[in-house]
Simulated assay, not measured.
Amino acid sequence: MKLHFQIVRLKLKETFSISYGSYSHRDALVVSLTKHNKTGYGECTAIDYYGIDLNAFILKLESIQSLLEKREIIYPTEFYLFLESLNLHFFLCSALDCAYWDLFGKLEKKNFLELNSISYNKLPESSITISIDPIENQIDKIKKSNWNNFKVKCNHFNELELNSLLCLDKNIALDANCSFSIDDCKLIENNKLSSQFTYIEQPLEVNSFTNLNANKYPNWMADEDCQNETSILGLKHHYSTLNLKLVKLGGLTPALQFVKEAKANNFKIMIGCMTESTIGISAGAVLTPYADFVDLDGANLISNDIANGNFIDNGKVFLSEKPGLGISLK
């Protein structure tokens, strides 16, 4: 098995603003694993909030390359035990795990759903993210869009602005990225109108979630508060929905276990993403049969996508029938 890796710059179609800052691009590390002329692909992006240093990831890959390339082809869940032994950052582990699932499926001539006996009748539609902007600009973007579901970024609480979003007769969710106060959340919890939002994501600073009540009007969704499977139990009674992002969990292998644990504890699940190419989106998309909500618009936000595979078109999720994760480079 041969390992290859490179850093690419993904350019955003427009400046993307959230409560943590504004961005015109995202750098991504693309890894590939090749065996018998078949290549699997994985990806992780540099996210400031998580302190991601892609150059440090490159050094780590160089240090483990010989060990990794000596590995025989085994089932992905067994390969993941090897990855865990390498003490990798979960973002990097995710990229390698997804690349291996893609490679393994291509070698076996089966796609991820076939390998895991996953079936579905209809997939939820994805939202498109509306980044921070004056409310009139956000409303204008929503009105002009062909998508049906929208996730509106917030960096403060303004009741009048939120009410104006509800007047649009659209499927609107909010993503506060930790920008609401406890008092803001109490007002939201006691306002019947808040139940009209599809969900309200990560309203408070991390580890402040005990101030939230899942039995009130809003559908509170955990993002930064939900980093892995071990955090699930503590979120009960405070959140109703969990945002599953592969890079937070360390890849598809732990994500499968995360889904089981979340469902066993009566949580709803959203399959989310970072700003990433179709490589990362293709990996997340194979979990959409498990999802109550989908937010996989990352590749739709960039102007220089580098891959083909599973994709989102005006919110509709299209899963490739090709082996593995269906990924190929352009």
Rank of each mutant, 00 (worst) to 15 (best):
M1D: 10
K2D: 14
Q6H: 09
V8G: 07
V8F: 00
L10K: 06
K11A: 12
S17H: 10
S22W: 06
Y23S: 08
Y23A: 10
T34W: 08
K38G: 05
G40N: 04
G40P: 06
E43C: 04
C44M: 06
C44L: 09
N55H: 15
L59I: 13
L67G: 14
R71K: 15
E72N: 15
I74S: 12
F82L: 14
F82Y: 11
N87T: 15
L88Q: 05
A95C: 07
D102W: 00
D102Y: 00
G105E: 01
L107W: 04
E108P: 03
E114D: 11
S119N: 14
S119Y: 11
K122C: 08
K122N: 12
L123H: 02
L123C: 03
L123Q: 04
K143Q: 12
F157W: 08
F157H: 02
E159G: 03
L162A: 05
L162D: 00
L162S: 01
N163Q: 12
L166T: 00
L166V: 02
L168V: 11
D169H: 10
K170Q: 02
K170S: 05
N171Q: 13
I172F: 05
A176S: 01
F180Y: 08
I182V: 13
K186R: 08
I188T: 01
K192R: 13
L193V: 02
E205H: 07
V206N: 15
F209W: 11
T210L: 14
L212D: 01
N215F: 12
D223T: 04
E224A: 06
N228I: 09
E229C: 15
T230P: 08
L235K: 08
H237W: 07
L242M: 00
L246E: 08
G251C: 08
A255R: 00
E261K: 13
I269P: 00
I269M: 00
G272M: 03
G272P: 07
C273M: 06
T278H: 03
S282T: 07
A285C: 11
Y290N: 04
G298H: 07
A299H: 15
A307D: 03
N310A: 06
F311G: 09
I312S: 06
K316G: 03
V317G: 07
P323T: 05
L325W: 02
L325A: 02
L329Y: 05
K330F: 12
K330Y: 13
K330V: 09
